[in-house]
């Protein structure tokens, strides 16, 4: 067996460019996922609000019960049938965002439910509305507890984002495949791609641990 990494060195700038696109698309998706997840997570706190709860639960069930690739294709190939033509990048962010929103909503719900019931009672007993109590008392405490699992979600999303290469988005995976298509060096290039993903996820993990430690040191997290 002879390994030849020359195509990797030669294609390194494209790979780096692809890595940047991967980070961009992951960050944008997680941002969208956080907005969606916050709304859906709060909607799923109260089963007595049947319509909202039902819609939110349906969304989470569908997203978590179907392959991400199918969801992406539904958007990428399905939307044009309604004459909705989105750029591939927007499609990728939308798809990954909707996907991560379902998982973020569970993080949001879990974090809110982990806040002692007495906090809501104390806030309401002062005269705050449910919304005020959520915004001023519950969410600021819950958000801190969301940070570690959100970090894990970010890492998972970096890896899942490789699927958007199938939507012609020039991410890390896609750039690698372009190099393979001219060099036929699959093993070497896929190893290189795996290595770059590993660096991205490891750096993110380190950053998160650092952040968590600072939050702990500041007494924000117990």
């Amino acid at each position: 067996m002879n390994l030849d990494f020359t195509p990797v060195w030669q294609g390194w700038p494209q790979l780096m460019h692809g890595a940047v696109v991967t980070i961009e698309i992951t960050a944008a998706s997680l941002l969208l996922g956080c907005v969606l997840g916050l709304l859906v997570g709060i909607a799923r706190l109260d089963p007595s609000k049947k319509l909202i709860y039902g819609l939110a639960t349906g969304y989470v069930t569908f997203i978590r019960g179907t392959p991400l690739l199918v969801q992406l294709f539904l958007l990428f190939f399905g939307l044009p049938q309604f004459n909705i033509l989105l750029p591939a990048f927007a499609c990728g962010v939308l798809g990954l965002g909707i996907y991560s929103g379902a998982y973020v909503s569970e993080i949001v719900r879990g974090a809110i439910q982990s806040i002692d019931r007495g906090q809501m009672e104390a806030a309401r007993s002062l005269g705050m509305s449910y919304r005020q109590a959520m915004r001023i008392i519950i969410l600021p405490q819950a958000v801190v507890r969301m940070i570690p699992p959100l970090g894990n979600e970010f890492i998972a999303l970096i890896k899942n984002s490789a699927l958007v290469s199938l939507l012609t988005i020039a991410d890390l995976m896609h750039e690698g495949q372009k190099i393979i298509s001219v060099s036929y060096r699959s093993l070497e290039v896929y190893l290189a791609i795996a290595f770059v993903y590993l660096i991205l996820t490891s750096l993110t993990g380190l950053l998160l641990r650092h952040m968590e430690m600072r939050l702990r040191a500041g007494g924000v997290v117990q």
């Binding site: 002692d116 007495g118 906090q119 009672e121 104390a122 806030a123 309401r124 007993s125 002062l126 005269g127 008392i137 600021p140 405490q141 801190v144 924000v220």
Partner: peptide, 16 residues
């Protein structure tokens, strides 16, 4: 409720 103050056994201060 603004007219009625409540003090709980477990304090329920806002820790943040």
């Amino acid at each position: 409720r603004m007219q009625v103050g409540m003090v709980f056994q477990s304090f329920n201060l806002f820790p943040h």
